[in-house]
Amino acid sequence: MIEIVAVPAFSDNYIWLAVDRDRRVAAVVDPGDAEPVEAALEAAGLELTAILITHHHHDHTGGVQALAGSHGVPVYGPADESIPGRTHALREGERFDVPGVGMALQVLEVPGHTAGHIALVGDGLVFAGDTLFAGGCGRIFEGTPEQMFSSLKKLSELPDDTLVYAGHEYTLANLRFALKADPDNAAVAERLRRVETAREQDRPTLPSRMADERATNPFLRAHEPALRASAERWADAVLDEPVAVFAALRRWKDQG
């Protein structure tokens, strides 16, 4: 059975280890820094077998070369981005077995945050990188609102019980914005209370469940009348399509 372990890095990143404790092996997802990964592997007596990358930003790839060099492992990453040391270029729909850990993953192309961003889906989970966060979504740096909207729709269609492993601990700020954009949503208010308690106790808020994202994440709910009305008030404009509502919500969040 595969266990997913969070390795905190920098101020708010999560590096994820997919661990098979029986075999004493692990694969690492988005290692922005090699040092905490090496420490986690040594503490648990694990051998690294693979590196998986969702996108090219340095806080997700900065440790790749050091880890690949010291462990001699393959590096899987998006085909349309420059990933240091990549040995396996991944494209939409491709399926592969993660070496050593017995996990099968499928590739979803989810551009928007970056042009070639991918998500990795399998075993009831998704490594979403910086596309989908708990209660939010990534900033649009290289893509378009239309691309990000489409990418989030693709992810939101995963089953209710899918566990979302995102790249950052942004949940508290995301849900505070969600409540601002959708103040009458009791599910958002209740989730925010739970997250405030978790963070006060220094507990991670990830993974989240896809069902909770569909119920409380405003960026997955741009089709709903309450979000449209709120976005129109903020933008002082008529927003005829859900993608326009989404784009307004993203600009609103960006501006604080």
Rank of each mutant, 00 (worst) to 15 (best):
H88V: 15
A89N: 12
L90S: 05
R91E: 09
R91D: 10
R91F: 02
G93V: 04
G93R: 13
E94C: 09
E94A: 14
E94G: 12
R95M: 07
R95L: 04
F96A: 03
D97N: 15
V98R: 07
V101K: 04
V101A: 01
V101P: 07
M103Q: 14
A104D: 07
Q106R: 15
L108I: 07
L108R: 10
E109V: 09
V110C: 10
V110I: 03
P111C: 11
G112I: 10
H113E: 03
T114P: 04
T114R: 06
T114V: 04
A115K: 15
G116M: 05
G116Y: 03
A119L: 00
L120C: 10
L120M: 12
G122H: 05
V126N: 06
F127G: 00
F127L: 11
G129T: 11
G129C: 10
D130H: 15
D130E: 13
L132R: 08
L132E: 05
L132K: 11
L132D: 02
L132M: 10
L132P: 07
F133K: 00
G135C: 00
G136N: 02
G136M: 01
G138V: 15
G138I: 14
R139L: 13
E142P: 11
G143V: 00
P145D: 02
S151Y: 04
L152T: 08
L155W: 14
L155N: 12
S156Y: 02
D160L: 04
D160A: 12
T162I: 02
L163H: 01
L163A: 03
A166N: 14
G167P: 01
G167W: 01
E169M: 10
Y170A: 04
T171M: 07
T171V: 06
L172Y: 01
L172W: 01
L172C: 03
L175Q: 06
L175S: 08
L175R: 07
F177V: 03
F177D: 09
A178P: 04
A178C: 08
L179A: 06
K180M: 15
D182S: 09
D182I: 03
D182P: 12
D184L: 00
D184T: 00
A186E: 04
A186P: 03
A186Y: 00
V188R: 09
V188A: 05
V188N: 03
E190F: 12
R191N: 06
R191A: 02
R191S: 04
R194Q: 15
E196F: 08
E196S: 09
T197P: 07
A198L: 15
E200Q: 15
E200M: 15
D202C: 11
D202M: 12
R203G: 14
R203C: 12
L206P: 07
P207K: 00
S208I: 14
R209N: 09
R209S: 09
M210W: 01
D212F: 02
E213T: 03
R214G: 05
R214E: 06
R214W: 01
A215C: 04
N217E: 13
N217W: 09
N217P: 13
F219L: 01
F219W: 01
F219S: 02
L220K: 02
R221Q: 11
R221D: 11
R221L: 10
A222Q: 14
A222H: 14
H223P: 05
H223S: 10
E224T: 14
